[in-house]
Design a protein around this nucleic acid. Structure first.
Lengths: 236, 236
DNA sequence: GTCTATAGTCGGATAGAC
DNA sequence: GTCTATCCGACTATAGAC
């Protein structure tokens, strides 16, 4: 089901609706999508009711059906929206993080870029208010595959992990698909995720009341140390 | 619909001579608990139906009510069971991991013990087949506080994080509640969690078909390197 | 395009027999 | 202690008017 970058938006199994371009309903559609994003971010697919979404979006229930076919279609549409906005965000972040890595950097340069990527990712996850909303959705879906798994895996997770794993491999001057590099990539990413999908737990653990630029800086500093450790030979 | 092998259960199991008192329903209670543990491990509170649990446990629906009051009571009972078994498991693991740290170890010794704790924890999370069942339950509940949050936070999460944070602080010879040590503790723990609550995602990422002793060793080796990095001064 | 009304389903909990 | 039978509320989805 992996559609190309182009038509990530429309196309549920909607009868004859959206296909006619940007009409008046486009704004309604967006309102529903926003409400759904918020709702599915806060609770599981089963726990979220289409009723509440329709109320939050200030439309009647059948309107959801009209635009997205059924609950699952709406769910998938949410995933697609997240992917779109993630790309936009990362592109704006002035990083090549979202794009496949072209530069042939190794060693020192790779380490610097890895830090940049982690910083951009951290800024996105922890810094942006939107991401704070979607992150639980993405996290849940990836851990517990549902109707939107493939969309998120192929467009968010895989590119992210592979970029980071590749950079680590280059620090070591090993092949791009080096397994050890992948392990390190997972450790790094999940570590970062402690402060976003795991935000509330980390807040309580750290006795922070929020994660602002100051707190984020501390986290990134620890992650940088971890990255430096990757480059260093094992000490005993 | 439900009943499968009604004849199979009932009396055949409990060694009847053992206990004098009201041991009769205890076995039924346990069967329900096991089924619930499995169900709540696999899906959210909302998504799990008491009907399915009762079917899996091979009892009728009202029996759940009889033993646990309502769905939420059963949920809480699951959390308590997990805490109990976790303690037993960690105690058996030959580690002081579950108990408050008494030894006044610092520096080198603290580092060694930290590695031991992480190894024990890794063995428990990834190695044991039971933990594989509960982990999603615990993870979900901690990330997304529900009726069982306090039980799990106070008895699992907090002791675990504090032990690890304290050991890191001692490596640095800093106060037990050092914030940086806590950050590192979170990074370490969440890194490890990549391979248990995040198991399926990691399997796919690593292209592993399972996480056996061999894979676990590799993960622990990377975590050890991370621990060593904690001790090392920052390199640039 | 958006609504009201309703069909159809399912899940949690209770009553009361045995 | 464990069952059968049943109630009632809540949810998804559809039909059809405007």
């Amino acid at each position: 089901m992996s559609r190309k970058t182009s038509a990530l938006r429309k196309k549920a199994k909607v009868p004859a609706a959206v296909s006619a371009g940007y009409r008046k309903g486009e704004e309604t559609r967006q309102r529903i999508l926003d409400a759904a994003l918020k709702a599915f971010g806060a609770a599981s697919f089963k726990a979220v009711t289409t009723r509440r979404i329709s109320e939050a979006a200030d439309v009647s229930l059948p309107t959801l059906q009209y635009y997205f076919g059924d609950k699952e279609g709406l769910y998938r549409a949410c995933a697609e929206t997240i992917v779109e906005r993630y790309r936009g965000h990362m592109a704006m972040a002035g990083t090549r993080a979202a794009a496949p890595l072209k530069t042939r950097c190794v060693g020192e340069a790779a380490r610097a870029q890895l830090k940049a990527v982690i910083e951009a990712l951290g800024g996105f996850l922890v810094g942006s208010k939107e991401a704070q909303l979607w992150t639980p959705f993405v996290h849940r879906e990836l851990r517990d595959p549902g109707p939107a798994f493939e969309i998120l895996y192929e467009n968010l997770w895989r590119p992210g992990v592979e970029l980071i794993a590749r950079l680590i491999a280059r620090i070591w001057d090993r092949p791009d698909d080096d397994p050890d590099a992948r392990i390190r990539a997972l450790l790094l990413i999940f570590g970062l995720l402690a402060f976003q999908p795991g935000r509330s737990l980390s807040l309580r653990t750290m006795r922070w009341s929020s994660i602002g630029p100051e707190e984020l800086a501390k986290v990134l500093s620890s992650l940088d140390a971890q990255i430096d450790a990757i480059a260093a030979p094992v000490s005993t």
